[in-house]
């Protein structure tokens, strides 16, 4: 196998990269390459121009905002985030998810921005972004704009971005005090994309009751899904069986190996397990 021929561009600034993407026909950006390179090797992607983002300085930072939120540069490597103390402190859900993103070898190259833009329906980091209510920052020829992740994940592998725009950072609000989190997935082999995955965040009030519940599911829709019925069932006096029953309304995609009913079944099983773990980790606000 061999990628189709393309012209390679190696800009050193963001402005230059955006200018290349806006002027060259059929140009695609290349981040960590752990999804783009397979697509090139298999010729699913046939760009005429490839704009490599790896030499652009300053796109891989991790900063803590005054309100405790994390701002993570799009080119931050997954393996760096997995080991980063501020990520562990402020978004342990992401660390738990990262352990299941491919393998260490792929995480050494793969980036958070690449994963969010590739937007595979079963990928871990988009699910974390959905559960954490992340906001992505996109830069284009007319400047930058912020988009709530829920709006960014527009459709199947389709981020809400123009071809000449680049995701530059993602802002992740800090996990609220006392919150209990859990990320679980089921894949046939470790490192494969999940058949179904779940991210749960339970936010307590001052006496330790669930004030806010967030339930996000991956692999069961075109994009990561929040499950409002389950979230409502968990607030106050939590009704776990009603929350799990909310997965019965899911309409997952089918493929040759995995029928829709199995993904739906797994979503319920994983949600039940994740809620037990998240509750055990929850404290008080």
């Amino acid at each position: 196998m061999k990628p189709p021929p393309f012209a390679y561009h190696d800009p050193s600034t963001l402005e230059e990269a955006i200018s290349l993407l806006s002027t060259l026909p059929n140009a695609r950006p290349l981040a960590g390459g752990q999804s783009m390179m397979p697509m090139l090797n298999m010729r699913f992607a046939q760009p005429d121009h490839l704009v490599d983002l790896n030499r652009i300085a300053g796109l891989d930072g991790v900063t803590v905002e005054p309100d405790g939120a994390l701002t993570i540069g799009a080119m931050a490597r997954q393996r760096v985030l997995e080991q980063h103390p501020e990520v562990a402190r402020r978004c342990p859900l992401m660390v738990e998810a990262l352990a299941q993103v491919g393998h260490r070898q792929t995480r050494n190259r793969g980036t958070i921005g690449g994963s969010l833009c590739h937007l595979d329906p079963a990928a871990e980091l988009p699910l974390v972004a959905a559960a954490m209510e992340a906001v992505v920052r996109v830069a284009g020829p007319n400047g930058q704009r912020d988009i709530a992740f829920a709006d960014f994940a527009q459709g199947y592998m389709t981020p809400e971005m123009e071809p000449e725009e680049l995701l530059v950072a993602v802002r992740i609000p800090a996990q609220p005090a006392g919150a209990g989190h859990c990320f679980l997935e089921y894949a046939r082999r470790h490192g494969d994309f999940a058949i179904a995955s779940v991210a749960v965040m339970l936010v307590p009030d001052a006496v330790g009751r669930i004030a806010e519940a967030r339930v996000a599911l991956g692999g069961v829709g075109a994009v990561p899904l929040r499950l409002p019925e389950a979230e409502a069932a968990l607030r106050g006096a939590p009704d776990v069986s009603r929350a799990v029953a909310a997965t019965k309304t899911l309409e997952p995609m089918e493929d040759a190996l995995v029928p829709a009913w199995y993904r739906r079944h797994l979503a319920g099983v994983l949600l039940g397990r994740a809620l037990v773990i998240a509750q055990s980790r929850m404290g008080r606000a």
Partner: peptide, 19 residues
């Protein structure tokens, strides 16, 4: 195709030589 790139194992089929 695993090789070490600056000390870290990477899949050499997923890295361009120019990189």
């Amino acid at each position: 195709c695993t090789v070490l790139m600056d000390g870290a194992p990477v899949r050499a089929c997923l890295v361009l030589a120019v990189q």
